[in-house]
């Protein structure tokens, strides 16, 4: 099932020693087997397996691709086609902390654009680049489903809501100094990029019960309803065969 590699890929491969050998290979094969067993068809495990190899090296290397191909009995070309389609799989090493700034319209307008340019300047890196100490990779993101908390920054895919340029600079400084930082809605501290990738591969890290259940905007409607005594209709006391409310009660 081997496919011809491009000269460049084969050079790259030859120039480095695969981490997918010996003890690491044995360990990852156990994980892979567990993941594959969850699906009715093996190939469905490809996305999780790509997260798994990313958890080992911090990115998806040609060796990682070969590992996935071997586990599923498909070609490296088939795996590469998938790995290059999805933005969460990185083709170059990522720092310990991936810092994503939402710059989709809503967040951008609320200040995401300013946060992103401030971080670029502060860290001295461009989009999708890593600081020299290997700690922080900066990237602008599309909508991360937290618009009511805009502007939003993600660190290793944990929410840091309601950011400002100052808070975001402080955040990346702490990350580079090795200080613990706490997501606004997430675990009690941020794990590393590799650890996060492992969770995405489908391997639990036992941290699900950490952190808040909901906060701020998530509770805005509920709190107002409580104040005003509003609730859903009582199923035992419905208005007699109501012809539904007239189109959009005023």
């Amino acid at each position: 099932m081997s496919t011809p590699e491009t000269p460049k890929a084969s050079e790259e491969r030859a120039a480095r020693t695969s981490v997918f050998t010996g003890e690491a290979l044995a360990r990852l094969e156990v994980d892979a087997k567990d993941i594959i067993s969850r699906y009715p068809k093996e190939r469905s495990a490809l996305l999780p397996l790509l997260h798994l190899v990313q958890s080992e090296e911090g990115y998806v290397s040609v060796d990682g691709i070969a590992f996935c191909a071997d586990q599923l009995g498909i070609t490296t070309a088939e795996v590469t086609a998938v790995a290059t389609f999805y933005t969460m799989y990185k083709r170059r090493p990522v720092g310990d902390y991936h810092v994503g700034v939402c710059t989709n319209t809503l967040c951008a307008v609320m200040g995401g654009d300013e946060i992103f340019s401030s971080l670029k300047e502060h860290l001295g890196v461009g989009n999708d680049e890593t600081t020299e100490d290997g700690k922080v990779t900066l990237e602008h993101l599309e909508c991360n489903a937290a618009c009511d908390f805009a502007p939003v920054v993600m660190v290793n895919w944990e929410f840091f809501d309601d950011q400002t340029p100052e808070s975001a600079r402080r955040l990346v400084d702490d990350l580079r100094l090795g200080n613990d930082v706490t997501p606004t809605r997430g675990a009690n501290s941020v794990c590393t990029w590799k650890q996060a990738s492992r969770v995405l591969a489908g391997i639990d890290d036992g941290r699900a019960t950490e952190g808040v259940q909901a906060s701020g905007p998530s509770l805005a409607g509920l709190e107002l309803a409580r104040q005003r005594g509003w609730q859903a209709p009582d199923p035992a006391d419905l208005p007699a065969a109501a012809p539904a409310t007239e189109d959009g009660a005023k």
Binding site: L106, C147, A232, P233, L238
Partner: peptide, 29 residues
């Protein structure tokens, strides 16, 4: 019947309305 007691005739029930942006209290309603 409980579900259709909310909403309109052809759009029955409830749902989340997510307010974001230039609003005083953004959030889930």
């Amino acid at each position: 019947d409980w579900f259709t007691s909310m909403g309109t005739e052809k759009s029955a029930g409830f749902g989340f309305f997510s307010l974001s942006g230039h609003v005083t209290r953004p959030g889930q309603y």
